[in-house]
Amino acid sequence: MTTWEYATVPLLTHATKAILDQWGADGWELVQVIPGPTGSENLVAYMKRPRA
Rank of each mutant, 00 (worst) to 15 (best):
M1H: 11
T2D: 13
L30F: 03
Y6V: 03
E5P: 04
L30H: 02
A15I: 04
T16M: 13
A45I: 03
P10T: 08
V33L: 03
N42H: 12
A52P: 15
P10L: 07
K48Y: 04
G39H: 05
I19D: 00
P35K: 08
W23E: 14
E29N: 09
A15F: 06
R49M: 04
A45W: 02
L43W: 08
D26P: 00
W23M: 10
W4R: 05
T38W: 07
P35M: 08
M1G: 15
D21I: 04
M47W: 00
E41T: 12
T38H: 13
W28I: 02
K17T: 15
P50K: 13
R49F: 02
T2A: 14
T3W: 04
T3F: 09
V31A: 06
N42W: 06
E29L: 06
K48A: 03
K17Q: 14
V9N: 06
A45S: 07
G27P: 01
I34E: 15
G36D: 04
E5D: 10
E29A: 09
T38R: 15
G27W: 02
T2N: 13
A7S: 12
L11S: 02
E41D: 13
T8A: 12
S40E: 14
A15P: 00
L30T: 01
Q22A: 14
D26S: 09
V9S: 09
T16C: 10
W23L: 04
G39L: 05
V9Q: 15
T13N: 11
Y6M: 05
E41I: 03
L20H: 01
L12M: 09
E29P: 02
E41G: 14
A18D: 15
A45Y: 03
R51C: 08
M47D: 00
V44P: 00
T38E: 15
L11D: 03
Q22K: 10
A18P: 00
R51V: 13
T8K: 11
Y46V: 07
V31D: 07
A18Y: 07
W28G: 01
Y6Q: 07
Q22D: 13
R51W: 06
V44Y: 00
E41W: 07
A15T: 11
G27N: 05
G24C: 03
P10H: 08
S40Y: 08
V31M: 11
G24F: 01
E41L: 09
K48H: 05
H14P: 01
M1A: 13
H14S: 12
A52G: 11
L43P: 01
Y46T: 01
V33I: 15
Q32M: 10
T38S: 13
A18G: 09
T13K: 11
V31S: 05
K17H: 12
K17W: 04
M1R: 10
V44H: 01
L20K: 00
V31Y: 02
W28E: 00
L20Y: 01
V33G: 00
A7W: 01
T3A: 12
P35E: 07
L11E: 03
G27D: 02
W4Y: 15
T3V: 11
Y6I: 04
Q32A: 15
H14E: 11
A15Y: 08
N42Y: 07
L11N: 03
T16V: 12
P10I: 08
E41A: 14
V44M: 11
E41Y: 08
E41V: 07
I34Q: 11
